[in-house]
Simulated scan of single mutants.
Amino acid sequence: MTRIHLPGILAMATIVVASNILVQFLFGQWLTWGAFTYPIAFLVTDVMNRVYGEGPARKVVLIGFVVGVICSLIGTQIMGEFGPLVTLRIAIGSGLAFLTAQMLDISIFSALRKGAWWRAPLASTLVGSLVDTALFFTIAFSAALVWIEPANDVSWAGEMLPLLGFGPMAPLWVSLACADWAVKLSLALIALVPFRIIVRKLSPGTT
């Protein structure tokens, strides 16, 4: 890790901190503002991977993970209306989802590196974000994992409602997860534009 990697490190740290703050504020019925900032982490990881390689990308992810753990520890000490802002289940889900999804993103990107320029960032982000969403919401809110933190009442997340307000009946947390992944899917497509621009700027010889 050298000085040239510092922008990537700062970008990842900023995204993680911002997302941990913005997740406290609702956007509509199914989302929080953090849903719009967190997916940018995949863009940072993919740019680092394309320009500097798999090793530096993994180090930036690890730094982001550490920053996320610190944010979670701070959150557990801040009391909100219904208890700590960050519960044990949310902390575990957030950390495990971030680390697993980002490392998977790097592996998929590296495997597709020699293909068309858009294939690696798009495929890696789509798969990584799906895993991220599934892991986080399942660990944080599924009734099947209540044993992780028995004292934490997440029964509200299991309320049966029409999926996203109009689909078949499903637990509330499933609707939250679907809305979250829909945003990640949309941003994965949009992020191809800045990915192309940034990579060209940092690697003038790249086609």
Rank of each mutant, 00 (worst) to 15 (best):
M1A: 13
M1H: 12
I4N: 13
H5R: 02
L6Q: 04
P7C: 08
P7Q: 07
L10T: 01
A11N: 04
I15W: 10
V16K: 03
I21H: 08
V23T: 15
F25W: 12
L26R: 13
L26Q: 14
F27K: 00
G28N: 09
L31W: 05
T32M: 01
W33C: 04
W33N: 06
F36D: 07
T37R: 05
T37L: 14
P39C: 12
P39Q: 13
I40V: 15
F42Y: 15
F42N: 08
V44C: 10
D46M: 03
M48I: 11
N49S: 15
R50C: 07
Y52V: 02
E54D: 05
E54C: 00
G55F: 08
P56R: 02
A57M: 00
A57V: 00
R58I: 01
K59F: 03
V60Q: 02
V61N: 03
L62C: 02
I63F: 03
F65Q: 03
I70K: 05
L73W: 12
I74H: 04
I74M: 13
T76V: 11
T76E: 13
I78S: 10
G80H: 03
G83H: 10
G83L: 09
V86F: 06
T87K: 05
L88C: 00
L88R: 09
R89Q: 08
I90T: 05
I90S: 08
A91P: 10
A91T: 11
G93N: 08
G93S: 06
S94D: 14
L96G: 04
L96M: 15
A97S: 15
F98S: 01
D105N: 15
F109S: 03
S110G: 11
R113E: 04
A116M: 11
W118S: 06
W118G: 02
W118Y: 14
R119W: 04
P121I: 05
S124H: 00
T125E: 01
L126H: 01
L126A: 01
S129P: 00
T133R: 08
A134F: 15
L135E: 06
F136H: 11
F137L: 15
T138A: 13
F141K: 07
S142W: 13
L145G: 02
V146T: 13
V146S: 14
E149Q: 09
P150F: 13
A151R: 10
N152Y: 12
N152I: 00
D153A: 08
D153H: 10
V154Q: 10
S155D: 03
W156Q: 06
A157Y: 09
G158L: 10
E159G: 07
L161F: 00
P162W: 14
L163F: 12
A170W: 05
P171G: 07
P171S: 10
P171F: 10
P171C: 09
P171T: 09
W173P: 03
V174M: 12
A177Y: 12
A179F: 08
D180K: 06
V183S: 11
L185T: 13
I190W: 14
A191D: 15
A191I: 00
V193G: 01
V193E: 05
P194Y: 04
P194C: 04
I197Q: 11
L202M: 15
